[in-house]
Simulated scan of single mutants.
Amino acid sequence: MSALITPLVLTERQAAHRLGLSTDYLYRLRTDGPRRRSSTERPLPPGPTVLRIGRRIFYRPADLDAWLAALADGSVYARQARGRGRPRKIAA
């Protein structure tokens, strides 16, 4: 029986794999911040907190979880569900 060991830090590749994102997207979040096509839309939160040790970048699993929670909960960063298609006329 082997116990699962939670690592203290994850490399950028491991963090991207855990989040289901590309390493390029994590890099852009870290360097430029999230981008939107329209400036009128609400901004996305900044990327997860990183640890820099020398030239290497690491992510703590707890920071990744907190970043996901900020995206998913009722914060200002949560996306509102929109109906698809043309809006219907409401009968008065």
Rank of each mutant, 00 (worst) to 15 (best):
R30Q: 03
T40E: 04
T40W: 09
P46Y: 06
R36K: 07
Q14G: 03
D32N: 12
Y25N: 01
A3L: 12
V9M: 10
P7A: 02
G85F: 14
V9D: 01
L10V: 00
R42T: 05
T6M: 03
R88P: 07
A70W: 00
R42V: 08
R55V: 06
G33C: 08
S22N: 06
P7V: 03
P61E: 04
A69L: 13
Y77S: 08
T11C: 11
A3G: 07
T23P: 02
P61N: 00
L64Q: 01
G47M: 14
V9Y: 03
L26Y: 01
A16I: 02
R37W: 07
K89Q: 12
H17N: 09
I90P: 03
P87I: 09
E12N: 06
R13Q: 12
G85N: 12
L8N: 07
D65I: 11
I53S: 09
A72M: 05
F58D: 00
L8G: 04
G33I: 14
Q80R: 02
P61K: 02
D65F: 09
V50S: 15
A70C: 07
Y25C: 01
A16P: 10
S22Y: 04
G85E: 12
T49M: 15
T49N: 15
R55H: 14
T23R: 11
V50T: 15
Y27M: 05
A91F: 10
T23F: 02
L8C: 06
L4E: 08
R35N: 04
P87L: 12
A92L: 11
A66P: 11
R55Q: 14
H17E: 14
R18I: 02
R35G: 03
G47A: 09
I5R: 07
R82P: 02
A3R: 05
M1T: 09
L4F: 01
R30T: 03
A15R: 04
R82F: 10
L29H: 08
A62I: 12
L26H: 01
E12A: 13
V76T: 13
A81P: 10
P43H: 03
L64H: 01
P61T: 00
T40R: 15
A69S: 13
L8E: 09
T6P: 02
A3Y: 04
G20A: 04
A70Q: 09
L26C: 03
A72H: 03
P43M: 05
A70V: 11
Q80L: 08
R60H: 15
P48K: 04
G20Y: 01
A69E: 14
I53T: 08
R60G: 02
T31K: 15
R36H: 12
L29M: 13
R55T: 10
G20Q: 00
G20D: 00
G54W: 14
R55N: 15
Y59E: 13
P34R: 07
P46K: 10
P46L: 13
A3E: 12
D32C: 07
L26E: 00
A3M: 10
G85M: 13
E12W: 00
T40C: 09
T11H: 11
R18M: 11
R60Y: 12
R82V: 10
L19H: 07
A70L: 15
L10D: 00
A66T: 00
F58A: 01
G54H: 11
G83I: 10
P48A: 07
T40K: 14
Y77T: 04
Y25S: 00
S22C: 07
D63E: 05
L10E: 00
R82T: 02
D24E: 07
R42I: 09
V9N: 04
R82Y: 11
